Computed example of a mutant assay.
Amino acid sequence: MKVKKRNIFRLIWFSLVAIFFIWQWTTYQSRNLPEDTFKNDNKVSVEQSSDKITFLANNSRNQNEIIFFQGGLTDPKAYAPICREIAKNGITCHLIKMNWRMPQWDYKKIKTMFNLKNGKYIIGGHSQGAKMASQFVYENTGLMKGLFLLGTSHPRDFDLSDRSISTIKLYGELDGLASVSEVMENKNKLPKNTDLIEIKGGNHSQFGYLGKLLTDNASEIDLDEQQRLTLDKLIVFFHKIDNEK
């Protein structure tokens, strides 16, 4: 009887663990993408490969190009809508697909994907992708023209305060994974000219088209609004860098 009860307990325990991991995995999947996300039109052409999705600005008004790193474990397609919007504003955007969805293992591959020495690339990303974008800048002084960070407390383990690179950091007021206090704690490690901007009512998950991630807080604005606010700030930042040429 005791053996039977123990087996039932194990079955319940493993079932709950399996349900938890399945639920966790589903929150990291992209969802509710706009229907035209991957369609070609007169403003944007979409090219896909095993390593990236490129949203090519057909009427480019900006000489620079964007390299966008996905968040850790997240489906890279969750960032496709904002990448497309960036291209619609005249700036080609490359959304990088990381092996095993882990930017910390795969971030250096952009060195073989692009001619980074031509000085026209702006790098950034969301969450762990933002961390690895900042680390790439730390490890490769002078290679990137700009840095954008979304929903991250990094740089935390290294210092960029002595670097001269145009930088913007956007963080959600209600971010449960990179809290405002954590962002403020590490702000002195950012380049001194960094634009630090809070998205009022925004959280961590809505920087992408994702489910609500574990430990994140509920947002007070909807996904479309957070995406719009983020895009508006990024476009101003990108055009500012272009005007500095």
Rank of each mutant, 00 (worst) to 15 (best):
I221R: 11
N58Y: 02
L177E: 04
Q104A: 02
V46G: 06
V236R: 10
I122Y: 09
L196R: 07
L116D: 14
L116E: 13
T92L: 11
D36R: 05
L213I: 14
N115M: 03
L160W: 04
E225H: 05
N118M: 06
T167I: 04
G202A: 15
L229S: 04
I221G: 13
R6I: 12
N7C: 07
N217I: 00
D162Q: 15
L56K: 15
P103G: 06
L190V: 01
N59F: 01
S45D: 05
L170Q: 12
D216N: 05
A178T: 02
G201H: 02
S49K: 10
S49L: 08
P191I: 02
P155S: 03
P103E: 05
Y28F: 14
S30L: 01
D242S: 15
N99R: 13
F68P: 10
K212I: 08
Y79H: 10
F114A: 03
G72Y: 02
R6N: 11
Y28N: 09
S49F: 05
F55P: 09
Y138T: 00
S30Y: 08
N59H: 11
F14Q: 05
G142M: 11
Q104V: 01
V236M: 08
R156A: 09
Y28W: 10
F68H: 14
Y138H: 12
L214D: 13
H154W: 07
I67E: 14
P191V: 03
L174W: 09
N40G: 08
F69R: 09
K88R: 15
P34C: 06
T230E: 01
L190P: 01
Q24G: 08
W100S: 12
I19A: 14
